[in-house]
Design a protein around this nucleic acid. Structure first.
Lengths: 171, 171
DNA sequence: GATAATGATTACAAATCGGAACGATTGTCA
DNA sequence: TGACAATCGTTCCGATTTGTAATCATTATC
């Protein structure tokens, strides 16, 4: 199914409910982030993989595809592009030659550093309206909701497919 | 199912930033809502249209497609299905016979009532972790962020990257 | 009254999706 | 040991979804 645009309805009160605001702001936030990292020639999905590898290197493709929520058949070309760009590396696992161990290259690591800067700027852009304490307050509330909803920290279920623009093999 | 993917990076601190939490919870919230209204045989986009028509009847297709963020060419079959199901109605505009005026049928209106119930239950499901005051507090913070970000109340941008963020890949 | 502009629609090509099949490797178990 | 099942990465493929462009009718412009 394709999840798209409009969402929930207002709460019993008059204004929009928290659920709607969350969906609305979530989409907006993701969109801003996508635009920002487009300057680094990265899609949110690609950024996610870099971040995963920066945190836990050496994971298998199957594992990563699982976390990212994409079928292995789609993960392959997805990783291919990043490998061609010299950002990640496929290393054979000596103990089990079936699986690859994915790692960031030096180039990938330095791009990840850029990514963190972009993330910090993004955070600030989104939270402009709030003071430092209010931002912490918001983070606290959101964290509790996220925990109660059993969301894995650092991973989120997908929005819609980004512009995974393939090198467009026109011949 | 839809696609999953990582997003933004953590804030300067250690835990996740507000931006990431917003994106994560936004996606999760939208997903829950989609599941819930699937029982009514509705997608989020369809629910959005019903809600738009309930609030402001008689809008033209072009206008609605614009708000929903889809090209007119996709809006046509989209509206077709809802019309075939007897939920909406295309009425000719006497003053300008180029455009249609879309309205909810009685059946559409009663389904919209169900939709509101689902929305209320959804709100409660999402906010389980919070007390009544905390929920209000959260709504207050989110509303301020939404306003500062100039988000149109009651409408949220689709989960799709805008045309302008295309990562101008080498050809 | 000719021409441009607009709304709804159709046509169409390109991109994307995920499932199924495949070879290579490893685990199981008798 | 030897058969057989399971797993990982990959390719293949059809089905779906996407947006752009052309089309038709109507209305605005001047």
């Amino acid at each position: 199914m394709s999840m798209n645009r409009e969402d929930e309805s207002p709460a019993p009160g008059h204004g929009p409910g928290a659920a709607f605001l969350l969906a609305q702001l979530g989409a907006h936030t993701a969109q801003l982030f996508a635009q920002r990292i487009a300057e680094l020639d990265l899609t949110p999905a690609q950024a996610g993989l870099l971040r995963l590898l920066a945190g836990t290197p050496g994971r298998s493709q199957r594992e990563l595809a699982d976390v990212l929520g994409m079928p292995p058949s789609r993960f392959v070309p997805f990783a291919d592009e990043l490998e061609e760009r010299g950002l990640i590396e496929r290393r054979r696992n000596p103990s089990d030659r079936r699986l690859y161990a994915l790692h960031l290259t030096d180039k990938g690591l330095s791009l990840f550093a850029e990514l963190r800067k972009a993330g910090a700027a993004h955070e600030q852009q989104v939270c402009q309206a709030l003071s430092a304490e209010e931002r912490q307050q918001l983070i606290g509330l959101l964290s509790r909701v996220a925990e109660q909803q059993q969301l894995t920290p650092g991973v989120h279920p997908g929005y819609r497919s980004p512009r995974t623009d393939r090198p467009t093999r026109t011949r």
